[in-house]
Nucleic acid binder design. Structure first.
Length: 289
DNA sequence: AAATCAGTCCGGTGGC
DNA sequence: TGCCACCGGACTGAT
């Protein structure tokens, strides 16, 4: 499941191989075309497949940036516009000379959008579960939820943004895990890193926001930032489907203290799992209070 | 009015 | 072995 560190890794790799190049051709898979023909919003959102292809074909890639878990491709034809991509659960980009070069069959089988670049190579978007998203936007404001995202966690102000919301009236009774996984409160932190940060700071995932002192909230926020940075350094976490653009896995999963564990790495207690905000939340009943 | 809930995009996986 | 319920980021629309 790609969260901020995985998306950051992908963006850092896509940048040097794509900036300044032109998108010579765009291919959308028959499966996506069929889904869209049946009225589904599969991967390509709010746009016909043909119009999506037309929009991107001939554009030059000007910038590639990460915002929260989204990838923003700034493209230029006669004017600049955006291709905004979310990897969803299983989205992955591969930079290859041909599709056959994508290392694993399970990714090769689910390639849905192919950008042929002016260097002759391909940027191929594979998405096993099709929870990924592609949107062509003239400007960010065309998709309003993008404007509501919390500041980047490494930006000054992100911590104050988190504290202000976490201490506002309507969130007082909410479980802390729901808050830190909410992209409008903290950007880029999903289930994995939320689980790890709560474990590291010994906070029970269901603890109400108002039952956590400011000092511990600050500690939690700083822990999230540190874990996100550590994961970027480790090349992200590969649980099952995350790969970088060369098909390589990350190694952050080897450093997990809690996510996916049956037993606490610190005290040996059997871990417990709760459903919080609809998501499975694993924690240690001894260490986390 | 606001908060909550189900629905949407799916294939892989685990349990029986 | 084969089937089927369940899972999940994040938005959207309904209640």
């Amino acid at each position: 499941m790609p969260e901020l560190p995985e998306v950051e890794g992908v963006v850092r790799q896509i940048r040097p191989v794509s900036i300044g190049k032109k998108i010579e051709a765009v291919t959308v898979s028959d499966i996506i075309r069929l889904s869209k023909a049946n009225g589904k919003e599969a991967i390509i959102k709010r746009m016909e497949a043909d119009r999506f292809v037309d929009s991107l074909t001939g554009a030059q890639i000007v910038r590639v940036e990460r915002r929260s878990k989204y990838i923003y491709f700034t493209l230029r034809k006669d004017h600049e516009f955006l291709l905004v991509n979310h990897l969803g659960m299983s989205g992955a980009w591969f930079y290859v000379d041909q599709l056959q070069s994508i290392p694993e069959d399970k990714f090769r089988r689910h390639v849905h959008v192919i950008l042929t670049l002016s260097d002759g190579n391909l940027l191929a978007f594979s998405d096993i579960r099709r929870f990924g998203e592609m949107r062509v936007l003239q400007e960010e404001a065309e998709f309003p939820p993008l404007l509501l995202m919390a500041p980047e966690p490494f930006e000054p102000g992100a911590r104050e943004h988190f504290l202000a919301i976490a201490e506002s009236a309507k969130y007082q009774n909410k479980a802390i895990k729901e808050l830190i996984m909410d992209g409008q409160i903290i950007s880029g932190c999903g289930n994995i890193y939320a689980t790890e940060a709560l474990f590291k700071t010994k906070i029970h995932p269901k603890r109400a926001a108002r039952r956590i002192s400011r000092r511990r909230k600050v500690e939690l926020f700083e822990s999230i930032v540190a874990i996100l940075l550590e994961s970027i350094e480790a090349g992200g976490s590969t649980i099952s489907d995350y790969r970088n653009i060369n098909g390589e896995s990350g190694s952050m999963q080897d450093r997990f203290g809690m996510y996916g564990k049956k037993q606490c790495m610190v005290c040996g207690t059997m871990t417990k799992t709760l459903k919080i905000g609809g998501r499975a939340s694993v924690y240690c009943p001894t260490c986390q209070k």
